[in-house]
């Protein structure tokens, strides 16, 4: 669930190389984290073009200011925090929260029935969209990006206890919402799998 130590070491080695002047060292990190950064920006901005722009900016800022990154720590939450801040900044500039959801179709798990996956995704997206904006981000960070509560707290600038409490509350709301949408009392999109 969390970053493994070799993962951390690998990131740090690349960063170290970049700092020492190997400009090409940034590329594997961009490729590795592009999807996660983009997806986080998209969840904030709900617009693929803006998300793509902010993703690019995130990496530019990160590598331009790599001196402020403390080597030895995890690169991913640091990067995602920049992405979150830049996304929020853009949102604040437009002074409006996004209202429409634009999340790309995901490949899903090939082991599962595509119809089920699609139905589950659709239902979940519908219910997620009705949640508070902040709750959507919590779900993405925890379930989509597998961040620890420590990392989430760092990105969101909140105490761990608050993050946990908010997520627990949001899960309960989402579960109830899914249950009511499925019309079966309990959340289920299972069609036989």
């Amino acid at each position: 669930m969390n970053k493994t130590l070799p993962d951390l070491d690998q990131d740090n080695q690349l960063i170290d190389s970049f700092i020492k002047g190997e400009t090409g060292a940034f590329e594997p990190l961009v490729k590795k984290y592009w999807g996660q950064v983009y997806y986080l920006c998209l969840r904030y901005l709900k617009n693929s073009e803006s998300a793509s722009d902010i993703t690019q900016e995130t990496f530019i800022v990160a590598f331009s200011k790599i001196d402020t990154f403390i080597v030895g720590r995890s690169f991913r939450p640091w990067l995602l925090k920049i992405a979150a801040n830049k996304s929020l900044k853009l949102l604040n500039q437009s002074r409006s929260r996004p209202t429409s959801e634009l999340i790309p179709d995901q490949p899903g798990n090939p082991d599962q029935d595509p119809e089920n996956v699609l139905a589950a995704k659709q239902l979940l997206d519908d219910c997620l969209d009705k949640l508070e904006f902040e709750d959507q981000i919590l779900f993405l960070l925890r379930h989509g990006l597998n961040l620890t509560y420590d990392e989430m707290a760092m990105i969101l600038d909140k105490p761990i206890g608050s993050v946990k409490g908010e997520l627990f509350r949001a899960r309960k709301i989402l579960k109830d919402s899914l249950g009511s949408h499925s019309g079966m009392g309990e959340y289920s999109v299972r069609k036989g799998g």
Partner: peptide, 30 residues
């Protein structure tokens, strides 16, 4: 079931930057 669905559905797609995007980042950073 909620946890399983969230983990599966919210997982980011394996998206990669385009060569142009990488080039843009590199150019600006350098």
């Amino acid at each position: 079931q909620l946890f399983q669905s969230l983990d599966r559905v919210l997982r980011p797609p394996p998206l990669q930057p385009t060569p142009q995007q990488i080039a843009n980042i590199k150019k600006t950073v350098v």
